[in-house]
């Protein structure tokens, strides 16, 4: 027991050292600019007030939550349905279509950047939430991952449900989804995090600062106009903290879920 405690402390210290860049960021976000440049720490909340107030990070935070949330739900819905079809049905062209879905994993997102930009421009969807969300909805990885997972679920369960007269969507919803919950949850987290951290697409697609996500807000703050302000590092660090923190807190809340979920599909 004592040994355990000791090891826990050692692990904690090792973990803190590993995370020290993040921890230092948080510390720095509370320093005044002057004290940062002079080296004598003076604590303040002014950076957060500036970030949330003058620099609109509250709005960016809500935008990030909204966009990532909708992308996650939509992405999961599409992926689960497709994964179910690929795992459970033998249909002409099925292998080809599955290959077409998996192949999207190999495709560099940037090849689609200019064309998607032009597509959304033609649809008049740039500078809208839809413009942020639509191109991110299809997720080949989630479909691939869930298909592997669903294949591991005994077919006998589906058969039993079909015997009882269930329709395919009911089988999916009542049999497959509950069993695949951990995998779906982990994919959901994966999609959410990916979308949360997405930066090149919103950078290109969004001009209206009311629609900025946190990544864009932060990148923009970091790359201040060269003809303008001195880099206010403590403010940048406050903005970084705001960008990191929701994921960090969410992570602490669902860590076990997340880890358990992620691992279930990756290793069979």
């Amino acid at each position: 027991m004592k040994r355990e405690t000791l090891w826990s402390c050692a692990a904690l210290v090792a973990g803190l050292i590993f995370l020290s860049p993040v921890l230092y960021t948080i510390w720095m976000s509370f320093l005044t600019v002057d004290s940062y440049y002079s080296g004598d720490p003076v604590l303040t909340l002014a950076n957060y007030r500036a970030a949330f107030g003058q620099y609109d990070f509250l709005r960016y935070l809500l935008n990030s939550l909204l966009v990532s949330g909708v992308v996650t739900l939509g992405g999961l819905a599409l992926a689960v349905m497709a994964a179910f079809a690929f795992a459970r049905f033998d249909f002409p062209g099925g292998n080809f279509l599955f290959a077409a879905v998996v192949a999207t994993l190999m495709i560099p997102g940037h090849i689609t950047l200019i064309p998607n930009y032009l597509t959304l421009a033609n649809l008049g969807l740039l500078d809208t939430y839809a413009g942020l969300i639509l191109p991110a909805i299809s997720n080949g990885f989630a479909a691939f991952f869930l298909r592997q997972y669903i294949r591991g679920i005994p077919r006998a369960l589906d058969e039993a449900a079909y015997m009882d007269g269930a329709r395919p969507l009911q089988v999916l919803w009542r049999v497959i989804v509950p069993i695949a919950r951990p995998a779906i949850l982990s994919m959901g987290l994966y999609i959410f995090i990916t979308e949360w951290n997405n930066y090149i697409w919103p950078l290109v697609a969004i001009n209206d600062s009311d629609l900025y996500t946190l990544q864009i807000g932060l990148a923009k703050l970091y790359r201040e106009n060269p003809g303008e302000d001195v880099i206010n590092w403590p403010l940048v660090m406050a903005a970084s903290t705001i960008t990191i923190l929701p994921i960090l807190l969410g992570f602490l809340a669902v860590e076990r879920h997340l880890v358990r979920g992620i691992t279930m599909g990756a290793v069979k």
Binding site: Y117, L120, A121, N207, S209, K220, R223, G227, E228
Partner: peptide, 22 residues
Amino acid sequence: AQHIGNYNDIVTKLQAAIPARR
């Protein structure tokens, strides 16, 4: 009035905005 970024950013955003008609 909208702050877009520095001079380079403006050139970039403007050039990108032309095909989007925005």
